[in-house]
Computed example of a mutant assay.
Amino acid sequence: MYSRPPNNIEFVKQLVKRLYNYEVKQIKELNGADDRNYYLVTNYEKEFVLKITNTVEGSVPGLLDAVNSFILLLHNNGFRVSVPQVNANGKYLSYEEIPSPDGQSVHESPLNTAYGVRLLEFISGKLLRDVPFTPQLLTECGQVLAHMTIAIQTFESQVISKRRPDWSLLNVLAVRQYIDAVHNQEDRDVVSATLDEFERTVMPILDELETNLIHGDFNEMNIIVHNNPNEHPDNEYHVKGVIDFGDIHYAPRVFDLAIYLCYSMLFFTAGPPILAPAFGLKGYMKSIKLHENELNVLCTCIKARFCQSLVLGAHSYRLDPTNVYVLSSAKNGWPAL
């Protein structure tokens, strides 16, 4: 599992001044499973997110540069994304040693590599999680995912082509080693049965499923929405932007859809949660027609993502009880599974 950077607010302020020549007027730590993310208001009322990446991903040569290039590709294709900002050295990325808040030690990765630091554009609005999951909005999110899937296929990176993030569904069977973090025996049994199903029905046909570059974490915490009446007279919430591209990798494209449909069930109130995936699937298939083998495994992949999210969340919380964000899916996730 990843080692998160220490939470040193005062050092972050100094870092922003040194690297970007901005005075931090307001700072607030945002949610993050593995990284540290800070919302900043600087002089001239400019808003940013400072992202300090965990030791594992930060130590992979060229990975964060490739992620930056990926974000810029989406930006150039008209998507509203959190664009990286150039620092004082003319780069989108720097590596910095982060001292602990008490100033007595410096936290470094096992490879003696400092943490990756990036300043990203802040996209105002609300997280999808914080607004009603209406059929219209879930359908639109499915459309955005499909459009993004099509746009990113021109992107090429040897670094990305070789990676397999811990949270990839390609690694879902590995959660078996952490299942003891789940206290309820009935829940453990459901997870075991789902993983067995995935191993039996999905793994043997991986080479037959269409593989693309995928976002890898298209969920309610990474989709920004707004209800600007000047743009949308219907006064409904609409997708404004997409954030957090730290899990991009090559995998069956049905995995990306399954991940989104999984999380779409968490806060759906227009009916039983089991109905929610139908709306996202409807939006997605307006632009991308799934093959029969993809449709056959879609439900299993949705359930597998629930297992991955719930078990890894429980395991991460066991390691760091202060990081309650990793339990964000638990309350509604277990009943949905």
Rank of each mutant, 00 (worst) to 15 (best):
T322W: 13
K286I: 13
R164F: 07
I302A: 13
L195A: 05
L206R: 01
V41A: 11
G142D: 07
C301V: 09
A66Q: 00
D244E: 02
Y92H: 02
E208F: 14
I248S: 00
T139S: 12
H107S: 13
R253D: 05
P233V: 01
Y260L: 13
N235P: 09
Q136D: 14
T149D: 09
E186R: 09
N235S: 15
N227G: 01
D244W: 01
C307N: 14
Y115V: 01
V297S: 10
R4D: 08
Y325T: 15
F79L: 00
Y325I: 09
S287Y: 15
R129T: 06
I71E: 00
P6Q: 02
N77Q: 09
T300V: 13
K331P: 10
A181P: 12
E220C: 11
A314D: 08
V86S: 00
I288K: 03
I71T: 09
V326K: 03
L30N: 10
T269W: 03
K240H: 15
G62K: 13
Y260V: 01
T201F: 14
V12I: 14
A314N: 02
I214D: 04
S59Y: 10
Q153A: 06
Q153Y: 03
Y92C: 10
F48A: 04
P233C: 00
F48T: 05
G246V: 07
G116Y: 05
D196Q: 11
L137N: 00
N89S: 13
G103F: 11
P233A: 03
G125I: 13
P99I: 11
A258G: 15
E45T: 12
D320L: 08
E29H: 11
L74G: 01
Q85D: 08
T300I: 10
R253G: 05
H291N: 10
A251Q: 06
S105A: 11
N76Y: 11
I179L: 06
V41Y: 13
V242Y: 02
Q308M: 12
N219S: 03
P252V: 05
Y22R: 06
P277H: 02
E57A: 09
L50P: 15
L73H: 08
H232L: 09
V242W: 05
A304N: 05
E220S: 07
T322C: 10
L19Y: 14
Y44A: 11
P110G: 10
